[in-house]
């Protein structure tokens, strides 16, 4: 083939491939555009005032994922009518949690060369009190029952070819003083009674106790996960139990609901919800038969709420925390709930 013909072949192929590439980008852009238009039959969403201060009607505040102009905004619905009209706040969060009029919102921030993420501490009127840069993709967020402490977990992506190693980074923040521990790896860790340090140690899924001093979280190392109990004053974490991920402490502080890796399930959906009685260390399987990848939220001392994949990203469900009953659909197109009041 002459050079002229080679160049002709290359130019022709470039034209075709550029066409395919452009079409795929336009197609994806069009699809994203549709998500910003309200879908028929979806829950009605109107802009309004959202406050984290409890009032006469108990509410659920969550990330609204219904298509339309208020997609990804924090929204509230009455807890008694979760399928009812939503009030959207205008504040966009990927992950969220709130307690005692303190909110923690993990959100994306657009940049010129790459997007980044930040954690924003919100007051009762969802106004920013402080913000912190995040080193990765947000996955979990929690606030202590007093509102004094906040914690979050992000995924830090692999940097090797074909990105195969992932780690997590979990930060703990004193919202009163602004003192930030950017990684729980800075805490002294005890595994089965012995001091433990390893490069492969990862923490995720913090849940706070009501005493403002203790918390629970997942520690992973050597291919195993452990429930650890943390002490914010002594800056230590101590393992209590194996095969526990994303613990969530009951309001009365007696039980933990968590994801347990159950043998025989598919590699990418390996978890069932379990409850652990902290006094007896007895495990009870909850009645949700599907694999759950979420940090559950306690609706009261008897029921937990959690997300499962849905048509608009994620739907919320509830199930009794004692292994009885059946899962119930809570609401469509929502994620990261917190109960107000």
């Amino acid at each position: 083939m002459t050079l002229r013909n080679k160049i002709l072949v290359l130019v022709a192929a470039l034209a075709v491939l550029a066409g395919v590439a452009t079409a795929s980008v336009l197609h994806a852009a069009g699809r994203e555009d549709r998500k910003n238009r309200t879908q028929a039959g979806g829950p009605p969403v109107t802009a309004g005032k959202v406050s984290l201060t409890p009032d006469a009607t108990r509410k659920i505040v969550f990330r609204n994922m219904a298509w339309g102009p208020h997609r990804d905004e924090l929204a509230t619905v009455p807890a008694a009518d979760p399928a009812g009209p939503r009030t959207a706040s205008g504040v966009k969060c990927l992950r969220f949690y709130a307690a005692a009029t303190t909110g923690i919102c993990l959100q994306a921030e657009r940049g010129a060369m790459q997007d980044s993420y930040r954690a924003v501490v919100l007051d009762a009127r969802l106004k920013e009190r402080a913000h912190y840069s995040l080193p990765g993709i947000p996955t979990r967020a929690r606030v202590s029952p007093s509102g004094h402490w906040a914690a979050w977990t992000v995924f830090v992506g692999g940097d090797s070819y074909a990105g195969t190693n992932f780690s997590t980074r979990t930060a703990v923040l004193d919202t009163r003083t602004g003192r930030l521990t950017s990684s729980l790896e800075d805490f002294k860790a005890y595994l089965d009674g012995k001091e433990h340090h390893a490069a492969d140690t990862n923490f995720w899924g913090v849940t706070f106790a009501a005493d403002d001093q203790h918390f629970y979280a997942t520690m992973a190392t050597g291919g195993h996960t452990y429930l650890v109990r943390g002490d914010l004053a002594a800056r230590t974490v101590t393992s209590l139990h194996a095969n526990v991920e994303c613990p969530s402490l009951s309001p009365d502080g007696t039980r933990i609901v968590y994801k347990k890796r159950v043998p025989g399930l598919p590699a990418d959906a390996p978890w069932h919800l379990y409850a652990l009685d902290l006094a007896t260390m007895r495990e009870t399987a909850l009645a949700e038969p599907r694999s759950v990848d979420d940090q559950a939220v306690w609706q009261d001392n008897h029921t937990v709420a959690y997300s499962l994949a849905g048509d608009y990203g994620s739907d919320l469900y509830t199930v009794p925390a004692d292994g009885t009953g059946k899962p119930r659909h809570l609401l469509t197109a929502g994620l990261a709930p917190a109960y107000l009041g």
Binding site: L94, G136, I137, T139, F155, G157, G158, A162, G163, T164, N165, F166, S167, T168, N202, W204, A220, G223, T225, R261, A267, D268, D293, A309, G313, S314
Partner: peptide
């Protein structure tokens, strides 16, 4: 890829060595 796995597919890539 990390973003795709976590937000696109909603998977938890932790504890599962892709290679």
């Amino acid at each position: 890829l990390p973003l795709y796995l976590v937000t696109g597919l909603g998977l938890s890539p932790l504890g599962f060595g892709l290679l």
